[in-house]
Write a protein that binds this DNA or RNA. Sequence first.
DNA 1: TGTTGTTACGTAAGGCGTAAGCATG
DNA 2: CATGCTTACGCCTTACGTAACAACA
Lengths: 272, 272
Amino acid sequence: MDAHLLRTFVAVTRCGSFSRAADELGYTQSAVSQHIAALESDLGTPLLSRRPVQPTAAGRRLLEHAGPILVRLAAARAEITRMTQAPPDRLVVGVSPLAFVPEVVGANHVRVLPRVEVVTGVAQGTLDLGLVDGITAPSDPLNLPDVAPLAKAGVAERPLAVVLPADHPLAGRKHVKLADLADAQWIDAPESAIPLAQLRAASGTTGFRAALRYEGTHVPGLLEMATAGHGLALLPQTMVGGLPAVPVTRLVHRVERLTMPTQPGSGRSGVR
Amino acid sequence: MDAHLLRTFVAVTRCGSFSRAADELGYTQSAVSQHIAALESDLGTPLLSRRPVQPTAAGRRLLEHAGPILVRLAAARAEITRMTQAPPDRLVVGVSPLAFVPEVVGANHVRVLPRVEVVTGVAQGTLDLGLVDGITAPSDPLNLPDVAPLAKAGVAERPLAVVLPADHPLAGRKHVKLADLADAQWIDAPESAIPLAQLRAASGTTGFRAALRYEGTHVPGLLEMATAGHGLALLPQTMVGGLPAVPVTRLVHRVERLTMPTQPGSGRSGVR
DNA sequence: TGTTGTTACGTAAGGCGTAAGCATG
DNA sequence: CATGCTTACGCCTTACGTAACAACA
């Protein structure tokens, strides 16, 4: 199970086509066909159904491993490259939408990305610094996917608030326990608010089901939908403005700063 | 950076010798030499100092990635194998020393292993089921290394207690906050008690430094040392017996059950 | 019949072993 | 001088591309 083969496998599933994947990877489609055949014979089971090209059950399972493996391979290379070579002159900062803290303003290149991509970006060296947000109990670290060992530091912790319509039974309350809202109607807005998946993970329940999905990073639009009663949304209190919202107990919004464990250029061995 | 090369790299560092690694892997030592040379030329930096054979700074960094990558590759293969083939007739259970819960007694093959090896064992399919222990806040999941996506379930949560000499100032107290003991003299007994590293992680401090290291899984010996005043030890209260010990607030000892995400034999596709 | 994946085959590169070379203790 | 890593070289395997083939729409 060569890493090379895994790379073409994920490309094929992403493209949904051998030939398009071949173009993307700079192979002939014959080579791609041979790669998949090699993988399938190695694992002893078909990984793709052809025409249309879709992963089988086994293929889907493999996909779940392949991504992290490739990220980690890239991370290993990136880390060593960074140890050996001179630090880059640019400084690219990756930020998840709600992690935009004042610190960022000084950077000369900022990229707003989904949370996972901030983590993988820092790991693979495409980002020099990452700022990710999420929810936790006060002063607990975030539960980030550990695709690679990264240096993490808490940067900010702010209270959370649930945005709700003015006529909601809980409106005007001093605070709420999130657990009491597990069965409410939620809006899943993973880019402009706390993703419900994080809520479930932090609370250990299976509640917090989405009545509605909201894509994009346009927070005002989300706030409008929530106050109009289409569902609840959980955000850092500072982003709610003057709208009707109830502070949340026990959990906070936390921002962490990610870098590679080795400082850039710190280990320039062999250079005199 | 072929996975094959990584495998021989870790073997060489573990053996501290090209030739011994070659024996272990079934290569000639020439091949091993070529593997390392290939890696070093690929990454553009020396990874090992020869005579004696020791990893360089870059090599140490690579090692940190190589292990997990290889585990995850094995996990991918194991998971697909298990989906495809019939479930094994034996049932091997891996247990970390303090995770020995009554459930285990029914199994026909039990293996007591360090915590990490239980996790990697389940991931790679050498274990059919794992029981791991650790400390957390009540009803929080354990912070396990995610070498692969595994199915996790809480099995037990029991109170923790600090074992201390009878004449200790805290002896006889109703309970203690662990944070108050961060600067005490601790015994690091990772196999027979809670490892101090876990304590630091759970409390977010850098305290809990070891005065003494205790290796092995012989709990009575550890208890004797702790009551004799050589340092504190943190254990599940049930294992302390009648000895002087003070219950701990906020944190509990938790045991989790690990299996592969797919049930053995569940996805036997293509079999009619 | 066109599009897309598979198979056959020739060439080129890579990987491993044998054996000679070379550095270090 | 002996041990242990490196280099040189030959063989064999593997991997890719071209091109013919097959299957599905």
